[in-house]
Design a protein around this nucleic acid. Structure first.
Lengths: 235, 235
DNA sequence: TCAAAAGTGTTCTGATTACACCCATGG
DNA sequence: CCATGGGTGTAATCAGAACACTTTTGA
């Protein structure tokens, strides 16, 4: 039934892409999955992805396959891990997995655009990261690892900005941290830490509407360098 | 001149493997390179590695190719990154790169064994990590990234034990940290931190020979769990 | 004027640092 | 008996947590 590929293994690229959706208790992490139409694990949910093309790099392949299967373009993209156990698929497949973040406003905009053109990818569905369905292949482990990396990295990196629009309040930023870490943070201490990090540029604009207006901040993109080490240079 | 492979890309596995060698100023990081015999970059130095076999997982392939090219078996092995730029090799190759640590006593033992049998792999040579020759492919960047990861990880993980024999003194352990980080550490404070980490089991044995005998410690392998997250389970 | 979020100040604690000091052994 | 590294004590400093408090708006 299965055809062994000529030389060693075929290379696939998949992406775990997170966004934050408003929730009863603040916000929760959501991610899109694709319902498989073909036979290994047909009708099961799987990570968006596809085969690596001969003429594209790994990062490019991740972006392309993500766009082709879900119509989404991430605001942050980073390689997660290469999975290559012999028995993870009926045929030998090495999957280079990426993980990504997407701002909620982008999700809405991109989905709205697709809906208007009638090309909404209807075998794509968003799931709560804490309530996933049965998954194809080893994708459950992969998502668990991606979640671990996200929660880990939010502590020492500034990736939280990948989930926010250009201008945001400190309460917005704090809510992102709280959602990812799954616990409340002290507003006073959070403010000081955020301000001391040097990654925030205060604007003269304020968000009004609720109670006392909150200052809007902007992300200083000049920082975050050296956070991924010498790898930032190559791609 | 170059033949495009049938489907997408071939998968190679390479390893950056570090050891510590006694030095004028304490100790220095060393790594073995292999002189290429075939044509892309023939006669240039490259990382030990080889092609992924259809019937083996990625970790197994790293161990196997490392043994085949250098005769070495690492005491610590971890996946580093997947490199897959289109132009990193004349033919399309995706390299799954691992990084590894090897105890100095193991190096000596393994090399001595090979020398005795006359099968010393003589196109293998050890280089100081700070004085590398011209390298094939993108291997210079890869090594730079591996060094960054090592220096980074030594701060929050207990991998330093991968460079030490079973029993060691606190001075031995401190020397490993100093070599990797490239700076001196306060012996008194280092002792307290190491003891507080819970990863050290004191023995009743002492190393004599110099001045006051130093207590020998042993590494508590039950710790270090969860340091790589959910990934520790799969391999 | 009052509820609630924005924002500031203060204290306490634990970890890190610097460095003075004592201990035990080989030469 | 002394130089040297092994090992202990202690005060200063710094970052984080906890929480009281003031400010500013919408309703």
């Amino acid at each position: 039934m299965t055809r062994t590929s000529s030389s060693s293994a075929r290379v696939a690229v998949s992406t775990v892409i997170f966004t934050l959706r408003a929730d009863a208790d603040g916000a929760g992490l959501m991610l899109p999955l694709v319902r498989r139409t073909r036979d290994p694990y047909a009708a099961r949910w799987a990570l968006p992805g596809g085969w690596l093309d001969v003429a594209e790099g790994l990062d490019a392949a991740a972006s392309r396959t993500l766009a082709e299967t879900t119509g989404l373009a991430p605001s942050y993209l980073e390689q997660l891990y290469a999975f290559g156990d012999v028995d993870r698929s009926p045929t030998r497949v090495v999957s280079i997995v990426y993980w990504a973040l997407l701002r909620q406003d982008e999700v809405d905009a991109q989905l709205a655009a697709h809906a208007e053109h009638g090309d909404a990818p209807d075998n794509v569905q968003w799931f709560d990261a804490d309530a996933l369905p049965d998954l194809a292949f080893d994708h459950a482990q992969i998502i668990a690892y991606a979640l671990w990396r996200l929660r880990n990295k939010v502590g020492y990196s500034r990736i939280a900005h990948g989930l926010l629009p250009d201008e945001f309040t400190l309460a917005d930023l704090r809510e992102v941290y709280e959602s990812i870490l799954g616990r409340r943070l002290d507003p006073a201490n959070f403010r000081r830490q955020a301000e001391a990090s040097g990654t925030l540029i205060p604007t003269e604009r304020f968000r009004t509407g609720s109670h006392r207006p909150a200052r809007l901040y902007r992300y200083n993109r000049d920082v975050e360098l050296a956070e991924r080490g010498p790898l930032s240079a190559s791609p």
